[in-house]
């Protein structure tokens, strides 16, 4: 049983909202991307490049990237508090979960900054 497991956000409710809200954005972005790839199979470099150059696509991608980071964090945090606890790992459980969470935060930050650099830079 997890006594207190702060998840960097204000409350469980805000986590719940973050996850649902980001899920809707990501679902829309996934459908949008799949539809684009299916309907325009033969894209050469120029059309691929100016597709991602268009401001709306770039904004949608960046917003989805941020949503993905929120979605991933809440998801991974939930996994951690479900499985990496004292019940499974004894008294070292919470420590292992902390390390796991720190690793998740680091990885998500890397993806966020890397993604921004791709969409912002090009």
């Amino acid at each position: 049983m997890v006594i207190n497991a702060p998840s960097l956000s204000r409350s469980g409710l805000s986590d719940w909202i973050i996850q649902r809200f980001s899920a809707v954005i990501l679902a829309a972005y996934t459908v949008f991307m799949l539809a684009t790839l299916i309907t325009t199979p033969e894209m050469d470099y120029d059309s691929w490049r100016n597709f991602f150059g268009k401001v709306p696509v770039r904004l949608f991608s960046l917003i989805s990237l941020v949503a993905l980071c929120g979605h991933a964090w809440v998801g991974m945090w939930t996994v951690g508090t479900d499985y990496l606890t004292g019940r499974q790992l004894g008294n070292r459980g919470p420590l292992v979960r902390r390390v796991y969470q720190a690793f998740c935060v680091l990885l998500i930050a890397v993806y966020l900054l890397w993604g921004v650099q791709i969409f912002w830079g090009s």
Binding site: D44, Y45, W48, R49, F52, W114, I118, S122
Partner: peptide, 12 residues
């Protein structure tokens, strides 16, 4: 994705 946007060579 990064490679594909960087340059024509990357895309290829």
């Amino acid at each position: 994705l990064q490679l594909s946007l960087e340059s024509r060579a990357g895309f290829d």
